[in-house]
Simulated scan of single mutants.
Amino acid sequence: MKKLVICLLLLCSVSAFAQNPAIKIEKSGKGTPVLFLPGFITPGSMWTETANNLKGKYETHFVSYAGFNGIAPIAMPWYSTIKKELVEYIKVNKLKRLILIGHSMGGNLAVDLAAELGDVVEKVIIVDALACMREVMMPGVPAESLQYESPYNKQMLEMGADAFAQTATMMGQGMTSVTEKQELIKSWILEADRKTYVFGYTDLLKLDLRPTLTQVKVPVLILGAPFPTKEIVLPNYEKQYANLANKKLEIAPGGRHYIMYDQPEWLYIQMNTFLAQ
Rank of each mutant, 00 (worst) to 15 (best):
P226Y: 01
K24Y: 11
K24P: 04
V63Y: 01
L11G: 06
M271E: 10
K27H: 14
G39P: 05
V63Q: 01
T229M: 07
N153I: 03
A225P: 06
E116M: 10
I232F: 07
N272W: 04
G140M: 05
P253C: 06
I6T: 12
V141W: 11
G39I: 03
V178M: 03
S145P: 05
A16R: 11
G44C: 03
Q147E: 15
Q173N: 13
Q166R: 10
E158S: 15
S64F: 06
S145A: 15
M46I: 09
M105H: 02
T32Q: 15
K55V: 15
Q277W: 05
R256C: 04
I251E: 12
M1A: 13
P228F: 06
N246H: 07
I82L: 03
L146I: 12
V5W: 07
A242T: 15
K195L: 04
M170H: 13
M1W: 12
L234V: 07
N272K: 02
W266Q: 06
P77E: 01
N108Y: 01
Y65P: 00
K154V: 06
N53E: 09
S177D: 12
E144A: 10
Y197P: 00
K206G: 05
L130W: 05
L86R: 00
E191D: 15
S177W: 04
A225G: 08
L9G: 13
K30W: 09
E116Q: 14
L275G: 02
Y152N: 11
R134S: 08
D262Y: 05
P228H: 09
I82Q: 00
K123N: 11
L221C: 10
I99S: 01
M170C: 14
P21R: 02
A245E: 10
D112H: 03
R97A: 09
V124L: 02
L10T: 02
G172E: 01
A276R: 12
F164V: 07
V87R: 00
H103T: 09
N236P: 08
T42P: 05
Y201S: 12
S187R: 07
G39H: 02
A22S: 08
K247T: 14
P77Y: 01
Q182A: 01
G107P: 03
Q277D: 14
V87Q: 04
E144Y: 06
P235R: 12
E116C: 04
K186L: 01
L130Q: 07
Q215R: 08
L205H: 04
A129C: 09
N236W: 13
T214G: 07
K248G: 13
L113T: 01
L10W: 04
H103K: 11
D119M: 08
E122R: 14
Y268W: 14
Y65I: 08
G107S: 12
T214M: 09
G200H: 01
P73T: 00
A163F: 13
R97T: 12
G140V: 14
L10V: 11
E144R: 06
F68P: 00
R97H: 09
I185L: 06
M105L: 09
I259S: 02
V63I: 04
L100V: 06
N69K: 08
D162Y: 11
L213A: 13
S45A: 15
S13L: 15
Q19N: 15
L249I: 15
K83V: 07
P253S: 09
P219F: 04
E183A: 11
N53C: 10
P226F: 01
I82V: 15
A163D: 14
T212M: 10
V141C: 08
A131E: 07
A114V: 02
M170Q: 14
G255K: 03
